[in-house]
Write a protein that binds this DNA or RNA. Structure first.
Length: 300
DNA sequence: CCTAGGTTACGGACTAAGGC
DNA sequence: GCCTTAGTCCGTAACCTAGG
């Protein structure tokens, strides 16, 4: 694997062959990848936002996206060009944001996202992907209402990286373990990092993209324990339920994966809606959550 | 700095086992 | 039978991790 790399022999003479590791600069060229099939393709778009901070009032200062086409086995067969925009937040950038991203006030001055182009590109794909989709989906739907309600996947949590032999889930560290380095924390570079990760073959024999799509396409179920007796609040909280005091009616709610749906119905019937539990309603409500609802801002 | 979720750590209560 | 100790279990709090 290292044959032909300049200086390899000299390095091996000083250090053992196994005592060091090379990382390749990430390069994701546009066009056909030369691998994978040709029929029944699916289109994905990877997005990344750089923002003015992590708080609720912070806004997008850079948006990048890049579409790709994949075959039914989750092998990426073609990669589109980059698109990215800077946007002026209307106030000075915090020092740590400038340090983290390298984006300065001068860089964003007077710039703005091309709403129409960004929304058109996002809507042209079958699904959107981001590393920590909860973060990016919230910012994108707030900034681009026309892109609300799309199908979302998360390269951070819809793939079992740990179970596949990777340590940690941060983008740069996953990429390094895949053998690459990149210019982190610029939206375009981070988008390419995600594409490179999605192309990885995992120990399962499938690509990371294939695993991510399988997880994301599977519905989850939102249980609302409407009318649960007040005294059961601790048991509900312990089981992962959260209180929604804004909804109507106010209730405890929880999302459950498809394979645990029956188990949850059984638990609710026995613990919350049995006669002895004195429920104030006949039963819970169950709502199907697909990748169109998942990771959306403002939970229930 | 924020948000959500998942894991770890710990105090308190309880149980099983050993010494007398 | 009684007391102490070690191990177990449970609920809760604290911590950790992704994202800028």
């Amino acid at each position: 694997m290292l044959d032909g790399i300049p200086g390899k022999d000299a390095l091996c003479a000083v250090n053992g062959e196994d005592d060091w590791r090379l990382l390749r600069r990430l390069d994701v060229p546009e066009g056909e990848t030369g691998v994978g099939g040709r029929v029944d393709t699916v289109i994905g778009v990877v997005v990344d936002c750089e923002t003015s901070g992590l708080g609720g009032d912070d806004v997008i200062i850079e948006l990048a996206l890049r579409r790709f086409r994949a075959d039914p086995n989750g092998v990426i067969v073609k990669i589109d060009r980059h698109y990215s925009w800077l946007e002026d937040p209307g106030q000075d950038l915090a020092e740590d944001i400038v340090r983290l991203t390298g984006i300065t006030d001068a860089d964003v001055a007077g710039k703005s996202i091309d709403d129409e182009a960004a929304v058109r590109l996002l809507r042209s794909a079958d699904f959107v992907c981001a590393h920590n989709a909860q973060f990016d989906r919230g910012h994108i739907e707030r900034r681009l209402p026309g892109a609300a309600g799309l199908a979302w996947t998360c390269s951070c949590s819809d793939i079992d990286w740990r179970g596949s032999g990777y340590d940690g889930r941060s983008l740069g560290w996953l990429l390094a373990q895949a053998g690459y380095f990149h210019g982190a924390h610029r939206a375009g570079d981070d988008v390419d990092a995600v594409i490179a990760l999605l192309r990885q073959d995992l120990p399962s024999g499938r690509t990371a993209l294939a695993e991510m799509l399988e997880t994301a396409r599977r519905p989850t179920w939102r249980f609302r324990a409407v009318g649960a007796a007040f005294e059961l609040r601790n048991q509900l909280r312990m089981r992962g339920y959260r209180w929604d005091g804004e909804g109507d009616p106010k209730c405890w709610w929880r999302d459950v994966p498809d394979e645990r749906r029956a188990e949850e119905e059984w638990w609710l019937a026995g613990q919350v809606y049995s006669v002895s539990a004195r429920p104030k309603a006949l039963g819970p409500t169950v709502e199907r959550i697909t990748w169109r609802e998942r990771y959306a801002p403002a939970s229930p």
